[in-house]
């Protein structure tokens, strides 16, 4: 499976015109075509595609993600040490933690808030809280992220200096104490996390709301109500659990997304995360980096499916029955 995905990705990647030599020095009259040919040979870009893929596969099974084609030649995945003990950090190693942190916090916020908003909407179907929530989440979804980000940066950073404008650390970060460092990081994360989560609220809260409405009409809810359970127990105990089912698919779908960041968001907040890393690598045709990120992405996709399947079984005993039948 993974081999199939990587093979297809590899070929599609090479179908797109251009290679690293087109982006680096293509338009510098001082750079000669011979030196570009030399580079191509150095990176095996002159070999047939299938040979290139074979070489890549041979490395990747040993978990060797290789080095970037860019002139810094940094390792794609993890740090290496030269014989003098100088450590060069891996590109994914640098970018992944920060993206993962923002996305995880964002995902938790999105889910918690969405479930809350969705349930409130469903319980108050077609009354004003429902309408208000719908309008708010849609504004959040449709508002251009860059616009909101710059507006908030201006308001909280320039007019009021409540929050830092961009980056992840303040100028004197190294000299701060442990707690001050955490607080500093926290302050830098507020806006990026807020802006990146806002867009996700709409879809999930709508799924919850509509799913909840479906469930609330089913017989077992009527039964539960007839049994004399309190409305809260009916809603949160019985209905919510059944609503969460399709949500598990979404959680599964979100797992590969955890390592992807938004290019625009990361550029605006000057956070060097995975989104910008991938985008730049694509534009530069830095193939090892692209393939490295794609490989990790596919592994996570498969992993996400597993989670989703397990989650189903947990949430809905009928499926367990269905699958084992």
């Amino acid at each position: 499976m993974l081999i199939g995905i990587s093979l297809i990705s590899f070929f599609i990647m090479h179908l797109a015109p251009g290679d690293i030599t087109a982006s680096e020095s293509a338009f510098n009259p001082k750079a000669s075509e011979e030196s570009r040919q030399k580079l191509r040979a150095l990176y095996n870009l002159d070999k047939p595609l299938i040979t290139q893929y074979g070489l890549w596969l041979k490395r990747i099974v040993k978990l060797d993600f290789g080095n970037s084609f860019a002139s810094h030649q940094r390792p794609v995945l993890w740090e290496t040490k030269d014989d003098k003990g100088n450590v060069t950090k891996g590109m994914i190693q640098d970018a992944l933690p920060i993206t993962l942190m923002i996305n995880l916090i964002g995902l938790i916020i999105i889910f918690v808030l969405s479930i809350f908003l969705g349930v409130v909407s469903a319980v108050n179907q077609n009354r004003w809280p429902d309408r208000l929530i719908t309008v708010i989440v849609f504004i959040g979804f449709a508002i251009p992220g860059f616009w909101l980000a710059l507006l908030l940066m201006y308001w909280t950073g320039v007019t009021h200096s409540w929050l830092p404008i961009s980056g992840l650390h303040s100028a004197g970060y190294e000299k701060m104490g442990q707690i001050a460092q955490y607080l500093d990081l926290f302050k830098h994360l507020i806006l990026p996390v807020f802006v990146s989560s806002l867009g996700g609220l709409a879809s999930i809260s709508l799924y919850v709301r509509n799913g909840m409405l479906d469930v609330l009409q089913q017989e077992f809810i009527t039964t539960a109500r007839a049994k004399g359970l309190t409305e809260n127990k009916v809603v949160y105990g019985h209905a919510l659990r059944n609503t969460l089912l399709p949500l598990i698919t979404i959680v599964g779908l979100s797992i590969p997304g955890l390592i992807g960041g938004s290019v625009i968001g990361e550029s605006i907040f000057a956070i060097s995360g995975m989104g910008k890393l991938f985008f730049d690598a694509v534009l530069m045709r830095d193939f090892p980096v692209v393939m490295g990120i794609l490989t990790i992405g596919s592994v996570l996709t498969l992993f996400g499916n597993l989670i989703a399947d397990i989650g189903y079984a947990w949430a809905d005993p009928r499926i367990r029955r269905g699958i084992t039948n």
Partner: peptide, 11 residues
């Protein structure tokens, strides 16, 4: 400082 977006630089 590495700030990719020029609007952010300006802020």
């Amino acid at each position: 400082r590495f700030i990719p977006d020029t609007s952010s630089q300006f802020l």
